[in-house]
């Protein structure tokens, strides 16, 4: 069965990468492929990677508030390119209030610091439209920014 492919990216100058790397590990352990775009992305670069890599889900990790300002542009670019890929935002700085705003904007799921790995995995699987079990025997693709 085809593996779920996830793009993991951070926006702007947000450099605190601990969450992005940790969640990447969680998703790979769950048998998914993660294309790690890492730090220092603008929305256009995220959309370009999503197009080129043919990912099922875009994951944005944040430890600063920059994502709040970049998200509208990112979602508009996805629409512009007719790219129907769900966007998940996660990070310690995402409060329940932020999560509601994000969902209203069109983000498919938002996770704050209380989210568990299982919740994140379940959400990615649901949004990728594949609830079946996945092969976790092979190493996922290695990405570096």
């Amino acid at each position: 069965m085809k593996k779920i492919r996830v793009l993991m990216a951070m926006l702007g100058l947000d450099q605190h990468e601990v969450g992005a790397i940790a969640v990447t590990g969680v998703l790979r352990d769950a048998g998914m492929e993660v294309v790690y775009a890492g730090r220092f992305n603008l929305p256009a670069a995220v959309v370009k990677s999503a197009l080129e890599e043919g990912v099922d889900v875009i994951g944005l990790s944040c430890h600063s508030w920059e994502y709040l300002y970049y998200l509208d542009e990112l979602l508009a670019l996805l629409r512009e390119h007719d790219l129907d890929v769900p966007v998940i935002v996660g990070g310690s700085v995402v409060t329940p209030g932020d999560a509601r705003i994000l969902l209203d904007k069109g983000v498919s799921a938002a996770f704050g610091p209380t989210a568990t790995p299982d919740e994140i995995i379940a959400s990615v699987r649901k949004l990728a439209g594949t609830a079946a079990e996945h092969d976790s025997s092979t190493a996922a693709c290695e990405g570096r920014e």
Binding site: G12, L13, D14, Q15, F40, L42, S64, W65, E66, L68, Y69, Y70
Partner: peptide
Amino acid sequence: GCLDPDHPLAVHAVGT
């Protein structure tokens, strides 16, 4: 990151 506040990538991160 040794970038000035008017750098295009800094716009949403100045002073936060």
